[in-house]
Amino acid sequence: MSMAEMEVPRNVVEEYLCMDRMPHMWCSGCGIGTTVNCFVRAIERSKIPRNKIAVVSGIGCTGRVAGYIATDSFHTTHGRAIPFATGLKLARPEMTVIVYSGDGDLIAIGGNHLIHGARRNIDLKIICINNFTYAMTGGQAGPTTPPGSISTTAPYGGFEQEFNLPYLAESSGAVYVARWTSFHVTQLTRAMAECLKKKGMTFLEIITPCPTLYGRRNRQGTGVDTMKMYREMSVVKHGADTKEAAIVPGKEILVGRFVDIDRPTFLDGYNKQMKSRLGERFPEYRGISEESDPLEQHGENEIEQ
């Protein structure tokens, strides 16, 4: 059989990516692209129609994810992806809204929004890429940078205590909390699919290499070396106490699904409370009316993809 006759298997990834924007802007050895690959496979597995998915990012290397995914996508301001997504989700509750951003964006400048989003249990899927640094701006220290790490703004080594993200997310109220690394592509894809299915605010931390700006300065070698380190140091422990999940350089990295509980979402609570106080005077809230949507009026419900 000649090459021309060979059937080329369909690449599911391409269908979900803005291929006209390739090549992407991430460095060689960066883990973000790997997570995007897992993400689009999880979307496909979830069977959620692509036009009912919106991806919202903040600013930074991970902030660029929104621009590469072929769904409705929003590249917002630094740290504010969660409140933007909150407004979008409340206007369009039928959509699955994913917040895909980095540790600097979600945990430092956006930390307040993360804890309040989790407290409210807004139905958002938070994917937090943790590469321990501000990569887009050149490798500065952040609230996830482990003490002792060298960065451009901590040239003599950092000393501030870093956040333990699963513990922060759980104590703020997230209903699903997991951590994987970009080495664990199978588990990661499964975890993303679980998030997409789960109702309420889910928080998935993904440890990824940044060889250019973090690894290089902190003796982690190349991206491949860091992946080998993830393989060797990761310990899967589902249901682990998130208090124990702090990342300490040179020590094991706890991964797995730590939290998976159920509690009413913001909208569940809203509808229940208003109904109890207003009775018949309260029309159940199902999002903003689409009366002004011309496509709805003309009955052209779904645009062919």
């Binding site: 919202v56 929003f74 917002t76 301001t77 740290g79 504010r80 969660i82 409140p83 933007f84 997504a85 909150t86 407004g87 979008l88 989700k89 409340l90 206007a91 369009r92 959509m95 307040n112 929004h113 309040h116 809203y270 208003m274 207003l278 005077r281 309260f282 029309p283 809230y285 999002g287 903003i288 009316s289 689409e290 002004s292 949507d293």
Partner: peptide, 27 residues
């Protein structure tokens, strides 16, 4: 709540001023 609308009190003005923009794109 009487007219099918939604008010959400956010954690600060940064959040309030972008939550409305998310909702605006939501229609």
């Amino acid at each position: 709540p009487h007219v099918g609308g939604m008010f959400i009190q956010m954690e600060d003005e940064l959040a309030a001023s972008i939550a409305i923009l998310g909702a605006a794109w939501g229609g």
